[in-house]
Design a protein around this nucleic acid. Structure first.
Lengths: 156, 156
DNA sequence: ACAAGACTAGTCAAAATGCCCAACCGAACC
DNA sequence: GGTTCGGTTGGGCATTTTGACTAGTCTTGT
């Protein structure tokens, strides 16, 4: 069931926490901060990169820096027979940040980023026009209360 | 109103896209891939790091690699007079990945990661016990249809 | 007790970095 | 027209870092 994901151990987490402010920190500095041998850190980094435990770097880019200061959740009801087509179409929309399938009433929960409320309306229209999408309900985010993070889990 | 966020130009985006697979790629390699002078890329990288346009590196860590293969959305109704206390309490829960305040019926939309459905139940209990939280509704994600990304916006 | 794997501490040549420079370009301004 | 300004270029330079090794130590499971 679990797709064989390389679990990170204590050392991996310490390395990642030390790289949190800047992933481009030299390995030597990491090693001396963490009190490890350079070779050790180097080997860990290579394994980490190969393990698939890290998502692409581009997810670090704040949508706001890309001029998309308005984000929202779009919940969509989907014609089940067209689910794959709907997903494929959503994937082509750059403003779609991510999409999950929750248990419950809504079929797809889509997170989007737009330039402004007007642009958000446009994006929600584009989504509504995707094949298989029967109904959508958009709710804008008034505030990002806690920005996405994993530090808590890394520190545990 | 907009908190003075440094907007990325075309060159910034190209640099970020080239760093997508590995943020530790040497500056020299970046420069020759992009056909820019090394000094230019170096200057851009420094500005990018200082601009706040990039989120911490730790958000790249997949919760699954931390043993949290189950994620969910918890929508919470909050006693408005205790909103700040509720948020402060949520911030202390490591399993809380992020939290937004949507316009509409639910006051807070909380994304959480847990080890398994049982653990998810525990986490939702912890949330329910936060000060000011009146009612919660948890819906587990059956599938991550489109993983979080910003590549589309970077390429535009 | 043994083998396997991870860690250490050290070496080395090759490469990259940080930090200079003078020169160049285009846009904005007087 | 002329000028200043920010960003870029291509170059040099000393220093640091990297990648790829080594051999010895430590821990863990069998």
């Amino acid at each position: 069931m679990t797709p064989e994901i390389h679990q990170l151990d204590e050392t991996d987490k310490r390395i990642l926490l030390a790289m949190d402010p800047d992933p481009r920190i030299p390995v030597m500095m990491l090693a001396q901060i963490l009190g490890l041998a350079r070779g050790t850190v180097q080997a860990r980094l290579e394994k980490l990169a190969a393990s698939g435990a890290l998502r692409p770097n581009s997810i670090r880019v704040s949508p706001a820096a890309l001029g998309r200061g308005v984000s929202a959740a779009v919940s969509a009801e989907v014609d089940q027979s067209l689910l794959n087509e709907a997903i494929a179409a959503l994937r082509e929309i750059p403003e779609v940040l991510d999409c999950v399938a929750p248990a419950g009433d809504t079929d797809l929960l889509i997170r989007v980023a737009a330039k402004d409320p007007d642009d958000l309306y446009r994006v929600s229209e584009v989504i509504r026009l995707c094949p298989g999408i029967k109904r959508t309900s958009t709710s804008m985010f008034l505030r990002e209360v806690i920005p996405y993070r994993t530090t808590g889990l890394l520190e545990e």
